[in-house]
Design a protein around this nucleic acid. Structure first.
Lengths: 223, 223
DNA sequence: GGAGATCAGATTGGATCAGTTCTATTCCGA
DNA sequence: TCGGAATAGAACTGATCCAATCTGATCTCC
């Protein structure tokens, strides 16, 4: 499991280092879905022996990021349409769950933190800094789920989020949704301030519907 | 990821076979949480060389079942109280989500299938066949979540369920809840028949509260 | 000209081995 | 008798080797 997504990698030995490097390469899009991961090639590129890489690939197989077929080696896992939409829907549900559960424990400080992140998001947006905006969006939502207080939900959410974005990178982002997103953050925070779970849930569901439409339109009809 | 929990293991090579065997040993409780998994010992017991076992353990590390510390080897992951309760709560939420989402797509045939499983559960209960009853309960709930139509939710649910039960095995089950459980299955099915999502959700939440209380009472106060 | 067999190169799978790190016992001194 | 250090053993880590398998290209035959 991605304990490392929360607590950082110890990464003292080659296996952990290699795992982290390959994982980053996949999630950042430097290695595309479907691409083969040959141990010899990775060994040369990353400077390890093939042994640690074999173990690293197995670990990533366990995480679901790569698929290993007997005698054919590892490939970056193909993410089909159903998988991505299921993942996305699940993540929306996790956010709603977190908001409902965390509403009572929300402090003013936490709301301010979310406001800060929303503001940062708008700034990056206006400056045209796409990558920073995306990262900020991730931090906003991760924090939102974290305030729900269920660490397992957060773990599942983060893995899903990263996988979805690794996928979207290949298909491009919809820039049209960006400004709406900033507006939705604002509305959500207001709902949180009012302790209005119903409104918050409605906002998240609307957001889900819009994002899902955008997502599906980019994916080939059947895959 | 436990693709194998859904699609069965191909298991042509030693690594996949070893992974499956060790996973079963852990989830069935034959190997206790915290116990060390020495490659040499496993190699002798399972009849493989140490090489495939190293990779198998890495894969299980990715799945979150074992923890590997540098130069100290693998141990069955320790499941603390917060982890288990978070997992349990998440699973309840996933069931509620599945019921809400799957309600509209419920056919009479599916409801009958659930009824069949509920009946089987009662029979095993009266016959005192605990293990069969537990397995039946798992199938009932897995089917319930599956009818929700979100395969990712199902995957997360199953992994959580298996982990929780691997944990409970060590602390013993509450036999007092058994008969209530059978009653709750019945009520849930009735609610599904009436397309009454609100009732169904209420039943699941009540069940969650009762189970959680039972669970927490068995765990040491702090761990 | 196309389909299937064949063969060489590339890649994975499993095994063994030396080096390093950790663990647990033992031994020595206070 | 207790505490700490030294040591011996066990286990893990990383590297290399060889066999088994796959991939892709060429060649032959229909």
């Amino acid at each position: 499991m991605s304990n490392e997504a929360l607590a950082l990698d110890a990464a003292q030995n080659s296996v952990d280092q290699a795992t982290r490097l390959i994982r980053e390469d996949i999630l950042s899009g430097r290695i595309a879905p479907g691409e083969r991961l040959k141990t010899a090639e990775l060994a040369k590129r990353l400077g390890f022996s093939t042994m640690p890489l074999r173990e690293a690939l197995r670990k990533l197989e366990g995480e679901g990021l790569v698929a290993i077929e007997p005698n054919r080696g590892a490939t970056v896992r193909q993410l089909d349409r159903a998988y991505i939409t299921d993942l996305f829907e699940l993540n929306t549900e996790l956010r709603i769950f977190a908001v409902r559960r965390g509403m009572a424990m929300l402090t003013l400080e936490r709301i301010r933190e979310l406001e800060g992140l929303a503001k940062e998001y708008r700034m990056h947006l206006e400056a045209g800094e796409d990558l920073e905006a995306i990262d900020c969006n991730r931090r906003f939502n991760a924090r939102l789920v974290e305030f729900g207080g269920n660490r397992e939900a957060l773990r599942v959410f983060l893995r899903g989020w990263d996988t979805i974005f690794a996928f979207r990178r290949g298909y491009g982002y919809g820039t049209g949704r960006r400004r709406v997103m900033a507006e939705e953050m604002k509305l959500l925070i207001e709902a949180l301030r009012r302790q209005d779970a119903t409104s918050a849930e409605a906002i998240l569901r609307m957001q889900n519907a819009a994002m899902m439409e955008d997502l599906v339109s980019r994916i080939a009809p059947e895959s």
